[in-house]
Nucleic acid binder design. Structure first.
Length: 466
RNA sequence: GUCCCCAUCGUCUAGCCUGGUCCAGGACACCGGCCUUUCAAGCCGGCAACGGGGGUUCGAAUCCCCCUGGGGACGCCA
């Protein structure tokens, strides 16, 4: 049984990178009909915040990634980690270290300056067992790394990776305040929770050999590892707040659809031939680790927008209308007429990349005091176009239906009378009704607005012209 | 500095494992055209890449080595 996990630390929002890691873990487990676990790694009491926990859970839920187990909180499991730490201490596989933070910092700096590895010099490693000189002093527990030999593992994405033990440090597993550290808790939890496959960012490659050594010391079987490349910003550097490192929920607020974001994230670093569009079911069916690329990818907003536009156009209109509503409400607009709303969505969705854009472009459908673009007004609401509007209004009032077939002859009649192209007749009407030169087809706009509103708006526009 | 990872169009990528069908395919963006009541959408077309150098081979994007470039790690953060 395949069991994967996503184990974020709540020291920041869930961003694009984290979400993709979560997605890959989720897809891999579901592909193998396995279990996906969510675990919150909150052992850093200083930096962990409840608001981030909420952001992470909210972001995953919105995206559509559901976990089968958890969320587990490491905070609730500290006794477990301590037990393990002292077990290693008792077995001689770990030792107490009394070096102060300041001292260590100095040693690091010095080593770096001399061109060496900034590693712990193992001062306390060989302190005699009956040493009493440090009695009562605060201490940390360090893991006793093998001094020689190699550690290697077979990465599911990159193949075999080997490290020499000399490169590894005697890392701290229990801090002086008695709290455990990441490289230790992660091993214990993954082992105890029965995680079979660890999919994570490749910034963890260096941690892997240390963790494998801990698995061995603890006598736990090690899982398989798969390190996915990091996502970069346009400047090719690691994703930061400037690029896409904002909360996933920001994308929701900007009017992106979770289907689009999930699709985009899946294709960032993974491919299945030439296919671009994947439903969640298809991703689960087709996702596999060997198809994940090895090189870092750049987050591309344009492509995300395109995908979002695609889903805007292809998801059921009723569905889009449902999700569209909050964006209207955010603008202080209520849309009680369901059928009308769906009709607006059907006409606007191909001209908007996001729900937010669509809301902004649809204001005139809901408000009579919609803004009027001044450039459009001076160009199309003029003394020259006034008679067209007057004529149109007159003909319009006589219409018995607002169907396209009923409206068409009216416009055609005017093009003949004024010897003008349709565009010259329609644009003034459009500006009168919408306040701008851009809108869905004029027949649709009129049908959606209805007889009364169209009449009022035309009258108002005519009166505004000197 | 040391260690680790990576390297195909501007971007996401297919192809690489199992060399020839690749003067490298798809998608986004961009440019042009068609359609057209505006804007979009849609359709058609175009631009555009195997980082460099050595090997191996009849033949290399594909295998090997070096260089260069980029990224990551080196915390009582995760």
């Amino acid at each position: 049984m395949v069991k994967t996990r996503f184990a974020p630390s709540p020291t920041g929002n869930l961003h694009i990178g984290g979400a993709r890691t979560a997605l890959f873990n989720y897809l891999y487990s579901k592909h193998h009909k396995g279990i996906f676990v969510l675990r919150i790694e909150d052992t850093d009491v200083e930096r962990s915040k409840q608001e981030y926990v909420e952001d992470i859970l909210g972001g995953l839920s919105w995206l559509g990634i559901n976990w089968d187990e958890g969320p587990y909180y490491q905070k609730d499991r500290v006794d477990l980690y301590r037990e393990h730490a002292f077990r290693l201490l008792g077995a001689g596989l770990a030792y107490k270290c009394y070096c102060s933070t300041e001292m260590l910092e100095e040693k690091r700096k010095k080593a770096l300056k001399e061109g060496g590895k900034p590693h712990y010099d193992r001062t306390c490693r060989d302190l005699p067992a009956d040493d009493v000189s440090n009695e009562g002093k605060p201490f940390v527990i360090r893991f006793k790394n093998p001094l020689s030999g190699e550690v290697s593992f077979d990465d599911l994405i990159r193949g075999t990776i080997t490290f020499r033990c000399e490169e590894l440090d005697d890392l701290i597993i229990l801090r002086s305040d008695n709290t455990p550290t990441y490289n230790f808790t992660v091993v214990i939890d993954d082992a105890l929770m029965g995680i079979t496959h660890i999919v994570r960012g490749d910034d963890h490659i260096n941690n892997t050999p240390r963790q494998i050594l801990i698995y061995e010391a603890l006598n736990y079987p090690a899982p398989r590892f798969a390190h996915v490349p990091l996502i970069h910003g346009k400047d090719k550097a690691r994703l930061s707040k400037r690029h896409g490192a904002t909360s996933l929920l920001e994308y929701r607020n900007e009017g992106f659809l979770p289907e689009a974001l999930m699709n985009y994230l899946a294709r960032l670093g993974w491919a299945h031939g030439d296919q671009e569009i994947f439903s969640q079911e298809e991703m689960i069916e087709k996702f596999d680790l060997p198809n994940v690329g090895k090189s870092p990818s750049v987050f591309d907003m344009d492509k995300l927008s395109w995908l979002n536009g695609h889903y805007m156009k292809t998801l059921p209109a009723q569905d889009i209308a449902e999700r569209f509503l909050p964006f209207l409400e955010h603008m202080g607009i209520s849309a009680p007429d369901r059928a009308q709303l769906v009709r607006i969505v059907m006409n606007q969705r191909e001209r908007a990349k996001t729900l937010k854009e669509m809301a902004q472009a649809s204001e005139y459908f809901f408000r009579d005091d919609f803004p009027v673009d001044e450039t459009a007004r001076t160009k199309f609401l003029t003394s020259a176009t006034k008679p067209i509007l007057v004529d149109f209004l007159e003909g319009f009032n006589a219409l018995s239906s607002l169907d396209e077939e009923a409206q068409k002859p009216l416009i055609e009649g005017l093009t003949q009378k004024y010897n003008a192209k349709p565009v010259n007749i329609i644009q003034p009407i459009r500006v009168a009704l919408c306040g701008k030169t851009v809108s869905p087809g004029i027949f649709e706009v009129i049908a959606i607005l209805g007889k009364e509103k169209v009449g009022k708006r035309l009258t108002k526009a005519i009166e505004s012209i000197q």
